[in-house]
């Protein structure tokens, strides 16, 4: 099986280790991984801020790139529920252009968030990794509510050897990031994050795992400000951690 990976701009620039972890993990699972360096951003920041012409101009070149990639690969996989959700909105964004809309609908069918891809397409739950410690999971909003993915990441985490999984109180409540919301209303955004962090602390977990780097940036930024020892880990990082014998 051949997969073209979409590395979101946040992962590319701030958390490259997440992208590498995902690539290594897929390779380990005998998937042939390709990465097209022409990719940039899915367009979500502009789209969610109400700048549709700007979002469209960026999204169009990404859409064409994904369509080209799918000529030689089977799927597009990304380490983000949020960016996948944005790309899944392309048919609506290009509703007035028959050619692009058709392409967008095709891409939409072949596009997966990582945990969803592992469990649904590859049919894998135990990826053979190992991590010593208590781990909790935060549901990213778009992954949970737009893509309806809540069980796959939990199955994957539970199968990691050495992990003691604990459910987070209010796991499905937003972390308060919300893209530009986090800088437009920093006080509200941080107050919401503080609630999330309080739940994480109550879980007494060593690490909080999520499937979106954006949530982890928000949660991690708050944990770090509080001087907390709790680690933030992208699911890909947890799953790529030392392979058990």
């Amino acid at each position: 099986m051949k997969v073209s990976i979409f590395i979101t701009c946040l992962v590319d620039q701030l958390y490259p280790q997440v992208g590498m972890a995902m690539a290594n993990l897929l390779t380990r699972l005998r998937v042939e991984v390709t990465f097209n360096e022409e990719q940039t951003c899915c367009g979500q920041p502009a789209f969610n801020s109400g700048y549709h012409p700007e979002a469209r101009s960026v999204a169009e070149q990404m859409l064409r790139l994904f369509a080209r990639e799918l000529e030689s690969t089977d799927y597009i996989v990304a380490p983000s529920g949020s960016c996948v959700t944005m790309i899944r909105k392309y048919p609506e964004l290009f509703a007035d252009n028959a050619e692009l809309k058709l392409q967008a609908e095709y891409v939409r069918q072949r596009l997966y968030e990582l945990s969803h891809f592992l469990v649904e397409v590859l049919g894998v739950e135990d990826v053979g990794s190992e991590f010593e410690g208590r781990v909790t999971y935060h549901d990213s909003c778009h992954l949970l509510r737009e893509l309806g993915v809540s069980r796959p990441p939990r199955k994957l985490i539970n199968a990691v050897r050495g992990v003691e999984f604990v459910e987070l109180d209010d796991a499905e409540v937003c972390c308060g990031f919300g893209g530009t919301f986090s800088v437009k209303h920093p006080e509200i955004s941080a107050a919401i994050a503080a609630e999330k962090v309080a739940c994480i602390e109550r879980s007494r977990a060593d690490a909080v795992v999520a499937c979106d780097a954006s949530c982890l940036m928000q949660i991690g930024g708050m944990l770090s400000r509080k001087g907390s020892a709790i680690r933030t880990l992208h699911l890909a990082e947890l799953l790529a951690s030392p392979v058990s014998k």
Partner: peptide
């Protein structure tokens, strides 16, 4: 961390990675 307006008053902002994913790839 980085001092980012509208962010850093309340949370830490991570620095850009020394080498991006695409460079590492």
């Amino acid at each position: 961390s980085l001092r980012v307006p509208q962010w850093s008053d309340t949370r830490d902002f991570p620095p850009l990675a020394r080498r991006s994913f695409r460079e590492q790839w």
